[in-house]
Design a protein around this nucleic acid. Structure first.
Lengths: 249, 249
DNA sequence: CCCAATTTGTTCGTATGTATA
DNA sequence: TTATACATACGAACAAATTGG
């Protein structure tokens, strides 16, 4: 009357706890695109059958993925792959708040697209070889027509084959959405460093500010599932009327 | 053969799920100092008996507190109240990394202590009345004798009665540790906003930099259990050789 | 060094409640 | 209403880590 040998044996392949192995396989399914952002994944009962584990074990795996913002559960509806770039979530990684403490959502304009090669910094951040082919995208984000933030984005050509200025300009939504629908690449996590700098030359011109103004410089690496780096982005922000926000618990 | 009525009835007092009510009571015990940071709390079996819930329900409550960094579990040893200011965790909220990407731990020096009253900003941040009595503490953090970061800290006198310059100077460890051992106040979470500014006057002098240098300005509110604000801190950082780091998942 | 007791970690499963379609 | 799906609550059995004798 005891349980038969499970389909996934904890000691067999990985030595990991069973629920960690289940979690790993779910992430694997996500990263190969079996389920896409917004999709409902199979019900708990179906997943239990698929992985040969009990409901409690499956829930523990899904619990962790939910806490990592990779899955979202809705009672009575199902469990879904998290969408990171729709509606207000669009600026999930862009927490600028204005003087009243309200979140703001600037408009994005693409002002440049070119091809290049990775220098040492980019190569290290993106995990590619020095000299590997890259794209460079330049943007301006504005509120009420006033430039607020400029970005210099670097992507690996290997990860985004045949990306063109047209695709970038004609994207229906955000860049992260373009990565997702056109390349199946989902940004789920970022790391960034912040420094203060002085506006000069090109940066001052694109921001429409006088040289000498203090700016925030943010260097961000965006990651997909399995800690795969997919984008390197350097931003310069006019923070006179907006501040960069964060919470740590 | 069914379970008797539990000591905590989900529908009785709060309408919350049982495990949320258990969690609330544990936080309550923490905030009144029944268990202090570093203490081992009673075993799962004991807590089940105390709250009249099953092991699964108790574990779900503790799981959430662990994920919030309020408790720490050690298999075979017990469950402990998280300590937020010991050893390397000392700078848990102070993620400055140097040019090599290494975390750095500057030395702290107290350079000022005074009494004052809350202006509108401080009152709002600390949840106290405008004009309420406060303390002001000024600090400098240095690496290799080179000032890197200055802080202006504001505390409510009501929360920290009889705080003196001597206590601040003679603290054995960090300020957060002083809050903890002398007043039973534990900082478990912070929120902060970041802007760029220009070094001038007093700030430039304390940092030992020339006026005109761009600085990071960080405004932080530190919270204890139950989202109680306990400290307001404005920092100015010379970020030329160090950057402010953050990760978002 | 080993053993026993304690404590948390993992896995299993059942029953019932609540939300949604 | 009914069926489905997730949420909550219960608890058993065994594994793994730690501690103290």
């Amino acid at each position: 009357m005891q349980s038969p040998m499970p389909t996934l044996d904890p000691a067999s392949s990985s030595g990991l706890p069973l629920y960690k192995e289940v979690k790993r396989q779910i992430v694997q399914a996500l990263s190969v695109g079996e389920w896409k952002p917004g999709d409902m994944i199979p019900s708990e009962k179906q997943l239990c059958a698929r992985f040969g584990v009990s409901i409690g074990t499956l829930r523990k795996a899904i619990d962790e993925l939910v806490s990592e913002n990779i899955l979202v559960r809705h009672q009575g509806r199902g469990t879904f792959v998290a969408v990171h770039n729709r509606g207000p979530r669009l600026f999930r990684f862009f927490n600028l708040i204005d003087s009243d403490g309200q979140r703001t959502y600037p408009q994005l304009e693409i002002v440049g697209f070119s091809k290049g090669r990775a220098d040492r910094t980019v190569a290290a951040k993106l995990g590619i070889a020095v000299g590997a082919r890259t794209y460079r995208i330049a943007t301006v984000r504005s509120i009420d027509g006033k430039p607020l933030l400029i970005e210099d984005i670097t992507l690996s050509q290997a990860l985004f084959p045949d990306l063109t200025a047209e695709k970038v300009h004609q994207r229906p939504s955000t860049l992260y959405n373009l990565y997702q629908v056109a390349y199946g690449i989902n940004v789920v996590r970022i790391e960034e460093g912040v420094q203060a700098c002085i506006a000069e030359g090109e940066h001052a011109r694109r921001l429409g500010v006088e040289p000498g103004l203090p700016l925030l410089q943010v260097r961000r690496v965006a990651y997909s599932y399995n800690d795969q780096p997919v984008e390197y982005r350097v931003s310069h922000i006019d923070s006179r009327h907006h501040e960069y926000f964060r919470a740590v618990s």
